[in-house]
Simulated assay, not measured.
Amino acid sequence: MGVVAAASGVLACCNAAAAGLVSSPRSSKALTPLAPSQIRGAPLICRLSVVRLHSERRGDYSHRGKIVCKSSTATQNDASVSQSQAGQGVKHFLHIDDYDNKTIMNILERAAEVKAKLKSGDRSFKPFAGKTMAMIFTKPSMRTRVSFETGFHLLGGHAIYLGPDDIQLGKREETRDIARVLSGYNDVIMARLFAHKDLIDLAKFGSVPVINGLTDYNHPCQIMADALTIIEHKGYIDNIKVVYVGDGNNVVHSWLRFAAVVPIHFVCACPRGFEPDPTTVEQARAKGAKIDIVNDPMEAVKGADVIYSDVWASMGQKEEAALRMQRFQGFQVNEKMMEQAGPQVLFMHCLPAERGVEVTDGVIEAPNSIVFPQAENRMHAQNAVMLHVLGA
């Protein structure tokens, strides 16, 4: 990787941390992780190396092998696309668990390196010079557009925004035709869509990498940013307890698929009838994920490391807002709920937030809220995803 050049100091730190984290490779003794306070004092790149090393020494390679863009679920049109179908050597980023633990941790480590480079003011790293990215938006978003466009520009590339009036997947032109045309013009495609099948078709028929900027089914770039943020603030991510309070939506589906790759305890506390897709839950559990789907948020948050919230009615569900307001009573993240979790808890929200609805203003503005570092990390995590799929 070699993006951040403070090599000797960081390597010394990483070596020391690694030495404190694991026994000899030939030893049969159990791992002895560093205390969180020890890890937290190390540079983020070092902390990520320690997290990755811990996962490797634990033998977490359950998804090693050929990268396959798996089917979403039966409720998401049951469409799939393999790397060979999409074109020789093409990497997509459609679902987090299309990749193994080592690859995901590599991407997060790269995100930390490039973030450090940009935050230092150094703008010399231009791996995307001469490259273009087509950004398809059937769902508008401030964060997704600005984070992708700014990140691609900072790394030397040019991003082209294609809004709902510019491109209509499957309406004005078939998705398979759009995929082929845009592949002829661009080096990568990012798509923020309603239908997950449209994303799958872009990857299946295109000949360049496709990145999932969000679909109604999942939101993998958001969870990559979330993981980066948790590591920055906790110093580790293995075995943390993340409690999501609210609707079992696309963000939850990506957390479930993340838990299938990285060993965390993920809890979704939602009203009855608003649970996440059961097929996705069972697929994640089958891969060893520790997952609880519950209906009592106050009980669920006890001992949580992170409480996570999102709007109760997402884009395209606003006609259900009044009904959801009634059904989600008791699921607001407020000061009492945060206190129930304990002093160690952090608050996260993928934004935009409806303050006073799913979360109180006081919780968002509290010292243990990491909502805005989380939002910034969308750009840094996505930069690393783009670097990965483009092989840069």
Rank of each mutant, 00 (worst) to 15 (best):
M1Y: 12
A6G: 15
V10P: 11
V10W: 14
L11M: 15
L11C: 13
A17F: 01
A18G: 11
S23L: 10
P25L: 12
R26V: 10
K29C: 11
L31Q: 10
P36W: 09
Q38T: 10
G41N: 07
A42K: 11
A42R: 06
E56F: 11
H63M: 15
R64P: 02
C69P: 14
C69Y: 15
S72K: 11
T73H: 06
A74N: 15
D78S: 14
A79N: 14
A79Y: 14
S84Y: 15
Q88P: 12
G89L: 11
K91F: 10
H92V: 08
I96A: 08
I96V: 15
D97L: 10
Y99D: 08
Y99G: 02
D100F: 01
R110I: 09
A111F: 07
D122N: 03
R123L: 03
K126T: 03
A129N: 12
A134V: 03
F137P: 04
S147F: 00
L154R: 12
G156C: 07
H158I: 00
A159E: 03
A159H: 01
L162F: 04
T175Q: 01
T175N: 06
I178T: 07
V181A: 10
L182Y: 08
S183K: 01
V188F: 07
K197L: 10
D198L: 05
D198Q: 07
L199V: 05
D201Q: 11
L202P: 00
A203K: 00
K204Y: 05
K204C: 07
G206H: 02
S207A: 11
N212K: 05
T215H: 04
Y217W: 08
Y217G: 06
P220E: 08
C221A: 09
I237W: 03
V245T: 08
V245A: 05
G246N: 07
N250R: 02
V251M: 01
S254A: 13
W255Y: 09
A259Y: 08
A260P: 02
V261C: 04
I264E: 00
V267C: 08
C268L: 12
A269N: 04
R272I: 12
T280D: 05
R285H: 12
K290H: 15
K290A: 15
D296V: 06
E299L: 11
E299N: 14
A300F: 09
K302E: 06
G303L: 05
D310G: 03
S314L: 10
K318D: 13
A321F: 13
A322G: 13
A322L: 15
Q329W: 03
Q329L: 04
G330F: 08
F331H: 01
F331V: 00
Q332P: 11
M338Q: 10
Q340N: 14
F347S: 02
N368H: 15
Q374E: 14
E376W: 01
N377W: 00
M379G: 00
L387Y: 07
H388M: 06
V389S: 00
A392Y: 09
A392R: 09
